[in-house]
Nucleic acid binder design. Structure first.
Lengths: 203, 203
DNA sequence: TTTGATAACTTAACACCGTTAAGTATATTT
DNA sequence: AAATATACTTAACGGTGTTAAGTTATCAAA
Protein backbone atom coordinates (compact mmCIF):
# COMPACT_ATOMS: atom_id res chain seq x y z
CA UNK A 1 0.00 0.00 0.00
CA UNK A 2 2.82 2.42 -0.85
CA UNK A 3 0.78 4.01 -3.63
CA UNK A 4 -0.85 6.58 -1.41
CA UNK A 5 2.55 7.45 0.00
CA UNK A 6 4.06 7.80 -3.46
CA UNK A 7 1.27 10.16 -4.47
CA UNK A 8 1.76 12.25 -1.40
CA UNK A 9 5.42 12.41 -2.21
CA UNK A 10 4.68 13.51 -5.76
CA UNK A 11 2.38 16.22 -4.47
CA UNK A 12 5.01 17.50 -2.12
CA UNK A 13 7.50 17.43 -4.97
CA UNK A 14 5.33 19.64 -7.12
CA UNK A 15 4.64 21.99 -4.23
CA UNK A 16 8.36 22.34 -3.67
CA UNK A 17 8.92 22.75 -7.40
CA UNK A 18 6.52 25.70 -7.41
CA UNK A 19 8.25 27.21 -4.40
CA UNK A 20 11.65 26.79 -6.00
CA UNK A 21 10.56 28.29 -9.30
CA UNK A 22 8.98 31.28 -7.57
CA UNK A 23 12.00 31.73 -5.35
CA UNK A 24 14.34 31.67 -8.31
CA UNK A 25 12.27 34.21 -10.24
CA UNK A 26 12.36 36.37 -7.16
CA UNK A 27 16.08 36.23 -6.75
CA UNK A 28 16.71 36.89 -10.43
CA UNK A 29 14.14 39.50 -11.40
CA UNK A 30 12.73 40.85 -8.15
CA UNK A 31 9.31 41.03 -6.61
CA UNK A 32 7.62 42.87 -9.46
CA UNK A 33 8.50 40.17 -11.91
CA UNK A 34 6.95 37.24 -10.08
CA UNK A 35 3.63 36.42 -11.69
CA UNK A 36 1.62 33.26 -11.43
CA UNK A 37 1.85 32.79 -15.18
CA UNK A 38 5.63 33.11 -15.22
CA UNK A 39 6.00 30.62 -12.42
CA UNK A 40 3.68 28.27 -14.26
CA UNK A 41 5.68 28.68 -17.47
CA UNK A 42 8.87 27.85 -15.64
CA UNK A 43 7.60 24.57 -14.26
CA UNK A 44 5.58 23.77 -17.39
CA UNK A 45 2.22 23.56 -15.69
CA UNK A 46 -0.85 25.67 -16.21
CA UNK A 47 -1.14 28.75 -13.97
CA UNK A 48 -4.22 27.41 -12.23
CA UNK A 49 -2.40 24.34 -11.01
CA UNK A 50 -0.58 26.55 -8.55
CA UNK A 51 -3.91 27.29 -6.90
CA UNK A 52 -4.27 23.62 -6.09
CA UNK A 53 -1.19 23.87 -3.90
CA UNK A 54 -1.41 27.45 -2.62
CA UNK A 55 -4.47 29.43 -1.63
CA UNK A 56 -3.33 32.51 -3.54
CA UNK A 57 -0.24 34.50 -4.44
CA UNK A 58 0.12 35.81 -0.89
CA UNK A 59 0.10 32.31 0.49
CA UNK A 60 2.83 31.32 -1.94
CA UNK A 61 4.97 34.35 -1.13
CA UNK A 62 4.40 33.76 2.56
CA UNK A 63 5.81 30.28 2.32
CA UNK A 64 8.84 31.63 0.48
CA UNK A 65 9.28 34.09 3.32
CA UNK A 66 9.15 31.20 5.74
CA UNK A 67 11.95 29.50 3.86
CA UNK A 68 13.94 32.72 3.89
CA UNK A 69 13.54 33.05 7.63
CA UNK A 70 14.51 29.46 8.10
CA UNK A 71 17.80 30.17 6.35
CA UNK A 72 18.44 33.17 8.58
CA UNK A 73 17.78 31.08 11.65
CA UNK A 74 20.26 28.50 10.38
CA UNK A 75 22.93 31.21 10.06
CA UNK A 76 22.17 32.38 13.56
CA UNK A 77 22.37 28.88 14.95
CA UNK A 78 25.92 28.56 13.70
CA UNK A 79 26.86 31.76 15.50
CA UNK A 80 25.29 30.66 18.74
CA UNK A 81 26.98 27.29 18.56
CA UNK A 82 30.31 29.03 18.89
CA UNK A 83 29.27 30.08 22.39
CA UNK A 84 30.99 33.46 22.61
CA UNK A 85 30.07 35.96 25.24
CA UNK A 86 26.32 36.67 24.83
CA UNK A 87 26.94 40.24 23.74
CA UNK A 88 29.44 39.09 21.13
CA UNK A 89 27.02 36.53 19.74
CA UNK A 90 24.35 39.21 19.63
CA UNK A 91 26.58 41.54 17.70
CA UNK A 92 27.57 38.81 15.25
CA UNK A 93 23.92 37.94 14.80
CA UNK A 94 23.13 41.48 13.87
CA UNK A 95 25.97 41.50 11.40
CA UNK A 96 24.64 38.28 9.92
CA UNK A 97 21.18 39.78 9.68
CA UNK A 98 22.38 42.76 7.69
CA UNK A 99 24.55 40.66 5.43
CA UNK A 100 21.68 38.29 4.88
CA UNK A 101 19.42 41.16 3.84
CA UNK A 102 21.98 42.51 1.43
CA UNK A 103 22.72 39.11 -0.04
CA UNK A 104 19.11 38.28 -0.82
CA UNK A 105 17.57 41.70 -1.39
CA UNK A 106 14.45 40.48 -3.13
CA UNK A 107 13.65 37.84 -0.59
CA UNK A 108 14.38 40.29 2.16
CA UNK A 109 12.09 42.84 0.61
CA UNK A 110 9.10 40.59 0.40
CA UNK A 111 9.74 39.16 3.83
CA UNK A 112 10.27 42.34 5.80
CA UNK A 113 9.13 45.23 3.69
CA UNK A 114 5.79 44.08 2.39
CA UNK A 115 2.93 43.70 4.83
CA UNK A 116 2.38 40.20 3.53
CA UNK A 117 4.25 38.34 6.20
CA UNK A 118 1.98 36.99 8.87
CA UNK A 119 3.60 37.05 12.26
CA UNK A 120 0.38 36.28 14.04
CA UNK A 121 -2.08 33.44 13.89
CA UNK A 122 -5.83 33.89 13.76
CA UNK A 123 -6.01 34.08 17.52
CA UNK A 124 -4.07 37.33 17.48
CA UNK A 125 -1.31 35.76 19.45
CA UNK A 126 2.11 35.18 17.93
CA UNK A 127 1.80 32.23 15.59
CA UNK A 128 3.70 29.35 17.10
CA UNK A 129 4.95 27.71 13.95
CA UNK A 130 5.99 30.86 12.12
CA UNK A 131 9.66 31.16 11.29
CA UNK A 132 9.43 34.93 11.70
CA UNK A 133 8.28 34.39 15.24
CA UNK A 134 11.06 31.90 15.84
CA UNK A 135 13.65 34.30 14.46
CA UNK A 136 12.50 37.08 16.72
CA UNK A 137 12.35 34.77 19.71
CA UNK A 138 15.90 33.77 18.93
CA UNK A 139 16.99 37.41 18.93
CA UNK A 140 15.09 38.12 22.14
CA UNK A 141 16.73 35.17 23.81
CA UNK A 142 20.17 36.48 22.94
CA UNK A 143 19.23 39.88 24.32
CA UNK A 144 17.95 38.26 27.51
CA UNK A 145 21.17 36.30 27.93
CA UNK A 146 23.22 39.45 27.44
CA UNK A 147 21.18 41.18 30.12
CA UNK A 148 21.53 38.29 32.53
CA UNK A 149 25.27 38.44 31.96
CA UNK A 150 25.06 42.13 32.84
CA UNK A 151 26.29 43.23 29.44
CA UNK A 152 23.33 45.43 28.51
CA UNK A 153 22.18 48.32 30.63
CA UNK A 154 18.46 48.51 29.82
CA UNK A 155 16.30 45.86 31.41
CA UNK A 156 13.38 45.52 29.03
CA UNK A 157 14.13 42.61 26.71
CA UNK A 158 11.31 43.41 24.30
CA UNK A 159 12.30 47.04 23.87
CA UNK A 160 15.96 46.34 23.24
CA UNK A 161 15.21 43.44 20.91
CA UNK A 162 12.90 45.53 18.82
CA UNK A 163 15.34 48.40 18.70
CA UNK A 164 18.12 46.16 17.45
CA UNK A 165 15.79 44.69 14.90
CA UNK A 166 14.73 48.16 13.75
CA UNK A 167 18.31 49.29 13.37
CA UNK A 168 19.24 46.28 11.29
CA UNK A 169 16.13 46.58 9.21
CA UNK A 170 16.70 50.27 8.63
CA UNK A 171 20.16 49.73 7.22
CA UNK A 172 19.22 46.82 5.01
CA UNK A 173 16.12 48.54 3.79
CA UNK A 174 17.83 51.81 2.90
CA UNK A 175 20.82 50.18 1.25
CA UNK A 176 18.60 47.89 -0.78
CA UNK A 177 15.87 50.25 -1.82
CA UNK A 178 17.92 53.37 -2.51
CA UNK A 179 20.76 51.79 -4.39
CA UNK A 180 21.63 55.07 -6.08
CA UNK A 181 22.01 57.07 -2.93
CA UNK A 182 25.62 58.03 -2.19
CA UNK A 183 25.92 55.89 0.88
CA UNK A 184 29.05 55.63 2.90
CA UNK A 185 31.05 52.51 2.23
CA UNK A 186 28.79 49.63 3.12
CA UNK A 187 30.98 47.96 5.72
CA UNK A 188 31.64 51.26 7.42
CA UNK A 189 27.92 51.78 7.74
CA UNK A 190 27.29 48.28 9.03
CA UNK A 191 30.07 48.41 11.58
CA UNK A 192 29.28 51.97 12.52
CA UNK A 193 25.67 51.12 13.21
CA UNK A 194 26.47 48.08 15.23
CA UNK A 195 29.09 49.90 17.25
CA UNK A 196 26.83 52.85 17.83
CA UNK A 197 23.86 50.81 18.91
CA UNK A 198 25.98 48.65 21.15
CA UNK A 199 27.71 51.66 22.62
CA UNK A 200 24.28 52.90 23.56
CA UNK A 201 23.25 49.57 25.00
CA UNK A 202 26.26 48.17 26.75
CA UNK A 203 26.85 48.61 30.42
CA UNK B 1 -3.48 89.01 -23.45
CA UNK B 2 -4.44 87.17 -20.24
CA UNK B 3 -5.87 84.23 -22.15
CA UNK B 4 -2.59 82.35 -22.39
CA UNK B 5 -2.03 82.92 -18.70
CA UNK B 6 -5.50 81.67 -17.83
CA UNK B 7 -4.91 78.52 -19.85
CA UNK B 8 -1.61 77.91 -18.15
CA UNK B 9 -3.37 78.37 -14.83
CA UNK B 10 -6.06 75.89 -15.82
CA UNK B 11 -3.39 73.37 -16.82
CA UNK B 12 -1.65 73.75 -13.50
CA UNK B 13 -4.99 73.39 -11.75
CA UNK B 14 -5.66 70.08 -13.45
CA UNK B 15 -2.13 68.86 -12.73
CA UNK B 16 -2.64 69.67 -9.06
CA UNK B 17 -6.08 68.10 -9.13
CA UNK B 18 -4.54 64.86 -10.36
CA UNK B 19 -1.88 65.02 -7.65
CA UNK B 20 -4.49 65.67 -4.98
CA UNK B 21 -6.73 62.85 -6.15
CA UNK B 22 -3.84 60.40 -6.25
CA UNK B 23 -2.60 61.58 -2.88
CA UNK B 24 -6.02 61.13 -1.33
CA UNK B 25 -6.43 57.63 -2.77
CA UNK B 26 -3.05 56.84 -1.33
CA UNK B 27 -3.86 58.06 2.13
CA UNK B 28 -7.21 56.30 2.20
CA UNK B 29 -6.57 52.96 0.54
CA UNK B 30 -2.81 52.58 0.33
CA UNK B 31 -0.35 52.05 -2.45
CA UNK B 32 -1.98 48.99 -3.93
CA UNK B 33 -5.19 50.80 -4.55
CA UNK B 34 -3.81 53.67 -6.61
CA UNK B 35 -4.50 52.96 -10.26
CA UNK B 36 -4.54 55.39 -13.12
CA UNK B 37 -8.15 54.50 -13.83
CA UNK B 38 -9.26 55.13 -10.27
CA UNK B 39 -7.54 58.50 -10.18
CA UNK B 40 -9.19 59.35 -13.48
CA UNK B 41 -12.59 58.30 -12.14
CA UNK B 42 -12.13 60.48 -9.11
CA UNK B 43 -11.42 63.62 -11.10
CA UNK B 44 -13.90 62.70 -13.84
CA UNK B 45 -11.41 62.66 -16.71
CA UNK B 46 -10.35 59.80 -18.91
CA UNK B 47 -7.34 57.80 -17.70
CA UNK B 48 -5.23 58.87 -20.64
CA UNK B 49 -5.54 62.52 -19.75
CA UNK B 50 -3.22 61.89 -16.82
CA UNK B 51 -0.51 61.01 -19.32
CA UNK B 52 -0.72 64.52 -20.74
CA UNK B 53 0.42 65.83 -17.38
CA UNK B 54 2.68 63.06 -16.12
CA UNK B 55 5.08 60.87 -18.05
CA UNK B 56 3.88 57.68 -16.37
CA UNK B 57 2.72 56.34 -13.03
CA UNK B 58 6.19 56.55 -11.55
CA UNK B 59 6.46 60.19 -12.47
CA UNK B 60 3.15 60.87 -10.77
CA UNK B 61 4.10 58.97 -7.62
CA UNK B 62 7.48 60.68 -7.60
CA UNK B 63 5.86 64.07 -7.51
CA UNK B 64 3.66 62.97 -4.64
CA UNK B 65 6.80 61.87 -2.83
CA UNK B 66 8.26 65.30 -3.44
CA UNK B 67 5.21 66.87 -1.81
CA UNK B 68 5.54 64.47 1.11
CA UNK B 69 9.18 65.39 1.59
CA UNK B 70 8.34 69.08 1.36
CA UNK B 71 5.94 68.64 4.27
CA UNK B 72 8.59 66.90 6.33
CA UNK B 73 11.05 69.69 5.63
CA UNK B 74 8.45 72.21 6.76
CA UNK B 75 8.08 70.35 10.07
CA UNK B 76 11.84 70.31 10.49
CA UNK B 77 12.12 74.00 9.74
CA UNK B 78 9.81 74.77 12.65
CA UNK B 79 12.04 72.77 14.96
CA UNK B 80 15.20 74.48 13.78
CA UNK B 81 13.62 77.91 14.15
CA UNK B 82 13.39 77.29 17.87
CA UNK B 83 17.18 77.29 17.96
CA UNK B 84 17.78 74.81 20.76
CA UNK B 85 21.14 73.22 21.29
CA UNK B 86 22.07 71.44 18.02
CA UNK B 87 21.84 68.01 19.60
CA UNK B 88 18.39 68.81 20.97
CA UNK B 89 17.17 69.98 17.58
CA UNK B 90 18.57 66.84 16.04
CA UNK B 91 16.76 64.65 18.51
CA UNK B 92 13.50 66.52 17.98
CA UNK B 93 13.94 66.18 14.24
CA UNK B 94 14.27 62.47 14.55
CA UNK B 95 11.17 62.34 16.69
CA UNK B 96 9.36 64.38 14.05
CA UNK B 97 10.58 62.04 11.33
CA UNK B 98 9.20 58.98 13.07
CA UNK B 99 5.92 60.65 13.89
CA UNK B 100 5.64 61.83 10.32
CA UNK B 101 6.13 58.32 9.02
CA UNK B 102 3.53 56.90 11.36
CA UNK B 103 1.03 59.63 10.57
CA UNK B 104 1.18 59.17 6.80
CA UNK B 105 2.06 55.49 6.46
CA UNK B 106 1.09 55.14 2.83
CA UNK B 107 2.93 58.22 1.69
CA UNK B 108 5.88 57.17 3.76
CA UNK B 109 5.86 53.74 2.22
CA UNK B 110 5.95 54.93 -1.35
CA UNK B 111 8.51 57.60 -0.56
CA UNK B 112 11.01 55.56 1.42
CA UNK B 113 10.22 51.94 0.93
CA UNK B 114 9.73 51.65 -2.81
CA UNK B 115 12.71 52.12 -5.06
CA UNK B 116 10.74 54.66 -7.06
CA UNK B 117 12.12 57.74 -5.41
CA UNK B 118 14.91 59.26 -7.43
CA UNK B 119 17.53 60.80 -5.22
CA UNK B 120 19.93 61.28 -8.07
CA UNK B 121 19.76 63.16 -11.33
CA UNK B 122 20.88 61.75 -14.66
CA UNK B 123 24.43 62.88 -14.00
CA UNK B 124 24.70 60.42 -11.14
CA UNK B 125 25.22 63.25 -8.72
CA UNK B 126 22.65 64.10 -6.08
CA UNK B 127 19.81 65.86 -7.85
CA UNK B 128 19.86 69.49 -6.79
CA UNK B 129 16.13 70.20 -6.85
CA UNK B 130 14.98 66.97 -5.20
CA UNK B 131 13.19 67.35 -1.89
CA UNK B 132 14.64 64.06 -0.73
CA UNK B 133 18.09 65.47 -1.24
CA UNK B 134 17.12 68.64 0.58
CA UNK B 135 15.73 66.67 3.50
CA UNK B 136 18.88 64.63 3.85
CA UNK B 137 21.06 67.73 3.52
CA UNK B 138 19.01 69.27 6.28
CA UNK B 139 19.65 66.28 8.52
CA UNK B 140 23.36 66.27 7.67
CA UNK B 141 23.62 69.95 8.49
CA UNK B 142 22.14 69.36 11.93
CA UNK B 143 24.58 66.53 12.51
CA UNK B 144 27.47 68.78 11.42
CA UNK B 145 26.35 71.51 13.79
CA UNK B 146 26.14 69.05 16.65
CA UNK B 147 29.67 67.89 15.90
CA UNK B 148 31.00 71.43 15.73
CA UNK B 149 29.40 72.06 19.08
CA UNK B 150 31.24 69.00 20.34
CA UNK B 151 28.05 67.13 21.16
CA UNK B 152 28.67 64.07 19.03
CA UNK B 153 31.74 61.89 19.38
CA UNK B 154 32.16 60.48 15.88
CA UNK B 155 33.55 62.84 13.33
CA UNK B 156 32.17 61.57 10.04
CA UNK B 157 29.05 63.56 9.24
CA UNK B 158 27.90 61.27 6.45
CA UNK B 159 28.18 58.12 8.55
CA UNK B 160 26.32 59.50 11.53
CA UNK B 161 23.64 61.08 9.36
CA UNK B 162 22.99 57.87 7.55
CA UNK B 163 22.90 55.89 10.77
CA UNK B 164 20.33 58.20 12.27
CA UNK B 165 18.29 58.04 9.13
CA UNK B 166 18.50 54.22 9.12
CA UNK B 167 17.36 54.01 12.73
CA UNK B 168 14.37 56.26 12.10
CA UNK B 169 13.49 54.44 8.95
CA UNK B 170 13.75 51.07 10.63
CA UNK B 171 11.30 51.97 13.34
CA UNK B 172 8.78 53.56 11.02
CA UNK B 173 9.05 50.77 8.52
CA UNK B 174 8.61 47.98 11.03
CA UNK B 175 5.76 49.65 12.90
CA UNK B 176 3.95 50.41 9.67
CA UNK B 177 4.45 47.21 7.77
CA UNK B 178 4.02 44.73 10.59
CA UNK B 179 1.02 46.27 12.27
CA UNK B 180 0.09 42.95 13.86
CA UNK B 181 3.38 42.34 15.55
CA UNK B 182 3.22 42.69 19.33
CA UNK B 183 5.38 45.77 19.47
CA UNK B 184 6.21 47.53 22.66
CA UNK B 185 4.19 50.65 23.30
CA UNK B 186 4.93 52.94 20.38
CA UNK B 187 6.19 55.94 22.33
CA UNK B 188 8.42 53.72 24.43
CA UNK B 189 9.98 52.37 21.27
CA UNK B 190 10.44 55.80 19.73
CA UNK B 191 11.97 57.30 22.83
CA UNK B 192 14.00 54.21 23.52
CA UNK B 193 15.51 54.26 20.08
CA UNK B 194 16.31 57.93 20.17
CA UNK B 195 17.87 57.66 23.60
CA UNK B 196 19.85 54.61 22.66
CA UNK B 197 21.19 56.03 19.44
CA UNK B 198 22.04 59.32 21.09
CA UNK B 199 23.68 57.57 24.00
CA UNK B 200 25.90 55.88 21.49
CA UNK B 201 26.62 59.10 19.66
CA UNK B 202 26.94 61.77 22.28
CA UNK B 203 30.27 62.82 23.72
C1' DT C 1 -14.63 -6.18 -16.52
C1' DT C 2 -17.31 -2.53 -16.79
C1' DT C 3 -19.15 1.38 -14.28
C1' DG C 4 -18.74 5.21 -11.40
C1' DA C 5 -16.29 8.23 -8.59
C1' DT C 6 -12.27 10.84 -7.41
C1' DA C 7 -8.16 13.25 -8.14
C1' DA C 8 -5.02 16.13 -10.97
C1' DC C 9 -4.75 19.14 -14.21
C1' DT C 10 -6.22 22.49 -18.18
C1' DT C 11 -9.09 25.81 -20.87
C1' DA C 12 -11.62 29.79 -20.99
C1' DA C 13 -13.10 33.60 -19.01
C1' DC C 14 -13.68 37.82 -15.77
C1' DA C 15 -12.30 42.06 -14.19
C1' DC C 16 -8.63 44.54 -13.44
C1' DC C 17 -3.89 46.87 -14.61
C1' DG C 18 -0.33 50.51 -17.22
C1' DT C 19 0.24 52.41 -21.48
C1' DT C 20 -0.14 53.81 -26.47
C1' DA C 21 -2.15 55.05 -31.07
C1' DA C 22 -5.61 57.00 -33.24
C1' DG C 23 -9.63 59.84 -33.33
C1' DT C 24 -12.59 64.04 -32.15
C1' DA C 25 -14.12 68.30 -31.04
C1' DT C 26 -13.04 72.89 -29.81
C1' DA C 27 -10.43 77.05 -29.99
C1' DT C 28 -6.92 79.88 -32.23
C1' DT C 29 -4.39 81.62 -36.01
C1' DT C 30 -3.76 82.72 -40.80
C1' DA D 1 -13.30 80.53 -44.20
C1' DA D 2 -9.52 77.24 -43.98
C1' DA D 3 -5.76 75.42 -41.63
C1' DT D 4 -3.65 74.42 -37.44
C1' DA D 5 -2.92 73.54 -32.77
C1' DT D 6 -4.85 72.22 -28.21
C1' DA D 7 -7.18 69.30 -24.95
C1' DC D 8 -9.26 65.52 -24.36
C1' DT D 9 -11.47 60.62 -25.32
C1' DT D 10 -12.12 55.93 -27.37
C1' DA D 11 -10.35 51.67 -28.34
C1' DA D 12 -7.00 48.60 -28.01
C1' DC D 13 -2.65 45.73 -26.56
C1' DG D 14 -0.59 42.75 -23.60
C1' DG D 15 -0.22 41.95 -19.06
C1' DT D 16 -2.09 40.74 -14.06
C1' DG D 17 -4.64 37.55 -10.10
C1' DT D 18 -8.25 34.52 -9.79
C1' DT D 19 -12.40 31.43 -10.59
C1' DA D 20 -15.71 28.18 -12.84
C1' DA D 21 -16.17 24.71 -15.73
C1' DG D 22 -14.32 21.03 -18.43
C1' DT D 23 -11.10 17.13 -19.31
C1' DT D 24 -8.51 13.20 -18.61
C1' DA D 25 -6.50 9.54 -16.14
C1' DT D 26 -6.53 6.64 -12.14
C1' DC D 27 -8.60 3.79 -8.90
C1' DA D 28 -12.68 1.27 -6.23
C1' DA D 29 -16.72 -1.15 -6.23
C1' DA D 30 -20.37 -3.88 -8.65
Amino acid sequence: MGIKERKEREQEDLQQKILDAASELFAKDGYESVSMRKIADKIEYSPTTIYLYFKDKNDLLNQICEETFANLIKDWQKIEDKADEPIVSLKKSMQAYVEFGLKYPNHYEVTFTNPIMEFLGESGLPFEGSMGQKAFENLSLQVAKSMEAGQIKQNDVAVVSQLIWAMGHGIVSLLNSHKDFPFVEKDTLIEGSIDMIFDGIKT
